[in-house]
Amino acid sequence: MHSFEFMEPTTLAEALRLLATHEDDACVFAGGTALLLAMRQRMMVPEIVVSLGRLHDLRTIGWTPAGGLRIGALARHGDVARSELVQQHYPMLAGVAAGLANPQVRNQATIGGNLCYADPATDPPSCLIAMGAEVTIAGPDGERRIPMRTFSVDFFTTALEPGEILTGILLPPPDPQRLGHYRRHLRTAAEHRPVANVALTARRVGSAWDEVRLVVGAATPSPQSMTRAEAYLAGRAITLDVAAEAASLVAEELAPISDGRGDAAFRRQVVRAATRRIVAEAAGLDWKETAA
């Protein structure tokens, strides 16, 4: 690996100053699991590595009934998965965090690092968008707060401006009427990165749903909200036929990526199947009934 300066600021203000001073020569280091691989493959060759490892305040997970959940950007996936607050109030997120990568990486990699690296082949972004998450970003001019759906911009690209640091993830207070389901598909059981995933949340209103959020991740350069299927599912009694129609709408709307792990046609079929299953599952239906 190339040589670099490793800096460990002890306050957020100091970290922001270092980024402002060194501009493009610097990069932010959180858990390091993805960044070290990129640096060793010389995809990234920063002269200055600004580690956030000593910003302990950014590691905490807090919850209030009125404010919801705040996850510090430096919380590790294992911290999120094992948090009683997350398990109790946001079981969908706890489940996603518990299944990411492998135990070692969950003990190292951070949720904030995951979002900032913006590798499409991962799970948290689509899950968080479907949950209505927002993120907080610190910069030279103070803090701003934006919806997670506008944070993930493109392939390895986020809404972070130069010199900014992601500080936390906010989730609205849990709504007992809102259901949440998540499905991820790996090419083989031994792989750690999904080829496609689907996140679904919706408010139950009688036997129908409204405020439907259906988000596809890993199959596209950045997570994509399936707006046609969301509109179609709202206000409708969910049957297996409705689930199949929603899956067709998603397959039409989706613009999947092709890579060595799966071409676009394969990913479209995986997402179609995943969508039909997740909608049926969320409505308490057995999707295997019409498996053909």
Partner: peptide
Amino acid sequence: VVKSCLSLAVQ
């Protein structure tokens, strides 16, 4: 448990 090839000694 962590992977020591994904960690820097300085951490």
